[in-house]
């Protein structure tokens, strides 16, 4: 059996869990295993009926009053009991921030580890080979897991399509779980001062990465953006250095965008950045490193110094616009 984790906040689904269902269904089909979903909750979760409409065997609501707000301690206790009661071969989750927080803890408690952030798999002779992206996206690694079940796998966002999860009907059952001492207390989640710039509506984005080298050089990128009528954005290191405000940040911890054109200046293309912009219609990359992963997803690329390319671009754009 395969257990798949359904993530939610106050019984509202985190949609990446549908990708995890699709992944689990796919593995289940390849290995001849049934899939059941697990929802940790403090009540008879309203989400259970929604998940029961997928082609899985059971929806298990792991119930305890301490599971109303997420804490790693409570989730680890709940998962430990569900796993011991159901003895799954695989536990499949989406590689969300919440999952990164508790999944390795559950695995470690059972003497296991997690094969995390998997982008694809192959099943050969009943054995899974999982592909992870390493070295900031520069290389892929095919990985196998040793030892006995259960095996923990988390899939990167977008590795499977949530809308490809097969529909069907599943039984819903509640499993009362024991939760011990919780060693942390959570305050209410909040959003930082709302982003003043909504880059999700931008048609053209000029984004800068570490290759821009200094805060003074941001002005050059701004000139290019102005010439194109584009918005300026950045990868995380630029915002960490406070060269641009955080509301300009693209990627897993910043904004997700899908403009008509995305111009990446001196951005290597770490996976945390790529998840935020890979749906742009046209991706243009300018980078000194011919092996930068950004070129793997670029439609147009220039290998070279952005300080040579950008001034020429500005001049040519001005000419073109007359």
């Amino acid at each position: 059996m395969i257990l798949v984790f359904i993530e939610h906040k106050n019984c509202v689904l985190n949609k990446t869990s549908l990708e995890a269902i699709a992944a689990a269904q796919s593995i289940g089909k390849d290995l001849g295993l049934k899939v059941s979903a697990v929802i940790p909750c403090d009540k008879d979760c309203a989400l259970a009926q929604e998940i029961a409409q997928y082609d899985i065997e059971k929806v298990i609501v792991a119930k305890n009053e301490k599971l109303g707000t997420y804490t790693p301690d409570a989730y680890a206790d709940a998962w430990e009991q569900v796993i011991k009661a159901t003895e799954p071969q695989y536990i499949v989750m989406s590689h969300t921030y919440q999952v990164r927080d508790f999944a390795p803890k559950v695995a470690a408690r059972l003497g296991r580890e997690v094969v995390g952030d998997v982008i694809r798999y192959s099943a050969d002779g009943g054995r899974l080979e999982l592909t992870r992206r390493i070295f900031l996206g520069k290389l892929d690694a095919d990985v196998t897991i040793g030892g006995d079940a259960p095996y923990f796998i988390t899939f990167q966002s977008g590795a499977f399509r949530g809308d490809s999860a097969a529909e069907g009907s599943a039984a819903v059952e509640t499993m009362d779980v024991q939760v011990g001492d919780i060693r942390m207390t959570a305050e209410d989640p909040f959003q930082e001062a709302k982003a003043t710039v909504d880059l999700s509506k931008s048609q053209i984005i000029v984004a800068v990465g570490r290759g821009i080298k200094s805060q003074e050089n941001i002005a050059l990128a701004q000139q290019l953006a102005d010439a194109l009528g584009a918005d300026l954005a950045a990868s995380r290191p630029i915002c960490d250095a406070e060269w641009l405000p955080i509301d300009r940040q693209i990627g897993s911890s910043g904004q997700t965008v899908a403009p008509k054109v995305y111009i990446a200046l001196g951005i290597s293309g770490a996976i945390q950045h790529i998840v935020g912009m890979k749906n742009a219609n046209t991706i243009i990359a300018i980078n000194k490193d011919a092996e930068a992963p950004i070129f793997d997803i670029a439609d147009y690329g220039i290998v070279g110094d952005l300080f040579d390319a950008v001034p020429v671009m500005i001049e040519e754009i001005k000419k073109a616009k007359g």
Partner: peptide, 27 residues
């Protein structure tokens, strides 16, 4: 025993056909 083991590392398979411009000359 339950360790994950890297069997093989390789350059990522390209998902897109990239038009490379300038042939090494950025300008």
């Amino acid at each position: 025993a339950s360790a994950q083991k890297i069997e093989k590392v390789y350059m990522p398979l390209k998902t897109k056909q990239t038009q490379m411009l300038g042939n090494g000359d950025a300008k």
